[in-house]
Simulated scan of single mutants.
Amino acid sequence: MIFDTDLMLFLPYTPRADSDARGYEAWLREVDAPFFNSVPGIIHYSNWKCSEPTAGQFTHFDFLYLDPAMADQVWSNPEVIAFAAGWTEKWGIDPKAEDLAINYNSYRLRLCSGQATFDPTAVRIAGSQTKTPRFGGAVWAVEASVVGTSPLPCYEFAFGSAAHSEGPADSRLGTLIAAPNQ
């Protein structure tokens, strides 16, 4: 699936340690993904988990493809703000933390090369210092850090069969948890 947008939010995070036992993945499928996919200005929203999480790094991530003409309205939407606060309270590592980056990060990305795509079979992701693709994916530059600070200026995302190709050592394979019609 290809989207007609060059704007995305990438949300890497690690939920609270007991989240799986409390039904986190079912909640993502039944509540989180349907909510975000119903918000005007969001073209497509999906939730993923790292197949082999790396200690000290995020274990989950979301892709939120935006309609550029409505992007500013998404994060100023009171329902989105309230929903994000509810997520932090229920699933965040430290819901009372003043710095929300303890709970999740959010980076506004702009497409540099490739296409804004989605394939539910898999995704390979890696941060990058350059806008040059390293393993056949689309490269997105960090336009702004919304929550937290991005450790790298660019990210590369390769979906489907390209995700299963051998990527660089710092890349990670993700499996889909929730998305529309999945």
Rank of each mutant, 00 (worst) to 15 (best):
M1H: 15
T5P: 06
D6Q: 13
D6A: 04
L9W: 09
L9M: 11
L9E: 11
F10M: 10
L11H: 12
T14F: 00
T14W: 01
D18C: 01
D18Y: 10
S19M: 12
S19G: 11
A21L: 11
G23T: 06
R29V: 00
R29Q: 14
E30G: 05
V31S: 00
D32I: 03
A33F: 04
P34E: 01
P34W: 02
P34V: 01
F36Y: 14
F36G: 05
V39L: 04
P40D: 11
G41E: 11
G41K: 07
I42E: 01
I43E: 11
Y45P: 10
Y45R: 05
K49H: 14
S51L: 14
S51F: 07
A55N: 13
A55L: 13
A55D: 15
Q57K: 14
F58M: 13
T59K: 13
T59Y: 02
T59F: 03
D62K: 10
L64R: 11
L64P: 03
L64D: 08
L66Y: 08
D67L: 09
A69M: 12
M70L: 15
M70P: 02
A71T: 12
V74N: 15
P78K: 09
P78Y: 05
E79F: 08
E79G: 09
V80N: 00
V80H: 03
A82P: 02
F83V: 03
F83I: 06
A85G: 06
A85D: 07
G86D: 11
W87H: 00
W87Q: 05
T88N: 12
W91N: 08
I93Q: 15
I93H: 06
P95R: 03
P95E: 02
P95Q: 06
K96L: 10
E98T: 14
L100G: 03
L100P: 05
A101Y: 07
A101L: 05
A101M: 10
N105F: 07
Y107R: 00
R108I: 01
L109F: 04
L109A: 02
R110T: 14
C112A: 12
Q115S: 13
T117F: 10
F118M: 13
F118E: 07
D119H: 15
P120H: 05
P120K: 10
R124Y: 08
R124F: 09
R124M: 13
I125S: 08
I125E: 03
A126V: 04
Q129G: 13
T130K: 07
K131M: 12
K131W: 07
T132F: 01
P133Y: 00
F135H: 15
G136H: 01
G137L: 08
A138M: 03
A138V: 09
V139H: 09
W140T: 03
W140G: 00
A144G: 09
A144I: 03
S145D: 10
V147H: 02
G148K: 08
P151N: 04
P151D: 05
L152K: 07
Y155D: 10
E156D: 05
F157D: 05
A158P: 01
F159T: 11
F159V: 10
G160D: 02
S161N: 09
S161D: 14
A162V: 12
G167F: 06
P168Y: 06
A169Q: 14
D170C: 08
S171I: 06
R172L: 13
L173C: 10
L173M: 11
G174K: 07
L176D: 04
L176H: 12
A178Y: 00
N181C: 10
N181H: 13
